[in-house]
């Protein structure tokens, strides 16, 4: 499942342990998106966490819902990984 983990992170969590290949794929897919808006990707045993800067996204994209951009990127990062 995806959920907003506080006001500056989106988390994807599954009920199993990711394989090493899956983890590597997540990091590779995130690399081109890394910026001062989408700051980092942290992968644990069964979570993928995209840390973003809501204030920068709000100001630069003129939006009051800054989670939309990181959420779309995280969906792309995890791809068709199943829970």
């Amino acid at each position: 499942m995806f959920f907003e983990n506080g006001e500056a992170a989106i988390t994807f969590q599954v009920k199993r342990v990711f394989t090493d290949k899956e983890r590597q794929t997540f990091l590779e897919r995130f690399a081109p998106h890394k910026s001062d808006e989408l700051e980092s990707l942290v992968v644990t045993e069964s979570t993928v966490n995209l840390l973003y800067n809501p204030t920068k996204i709000m100001e630069r994209h003129d939006t009051i819902e800054p989670a939309g951009i990181p959420f779309e990127v995280l969906k792309e990062v995890v791809g068709d990984v199943t829970e």
């Binding site: 992170a9 199993r16 342990v17 644990t44």
Partner: peptide, 29 residues
């Protein structure tokens, strides 16, 4: 029913039925 959680800064976790709040050097997982 979860395997692990991200130890995010500011995360509120339950330990011995009481809340624990994570600071900067908390565990990643």
């Amino acid at each position: 029913d979860r395997i692990d959680n991200y130890g995010i800064l500011g995360g509120v976790f339950i330990q011995d039925n009481q809340p624990v709040m994570a600071f900067n050097d908390f565990v990643t997982s």
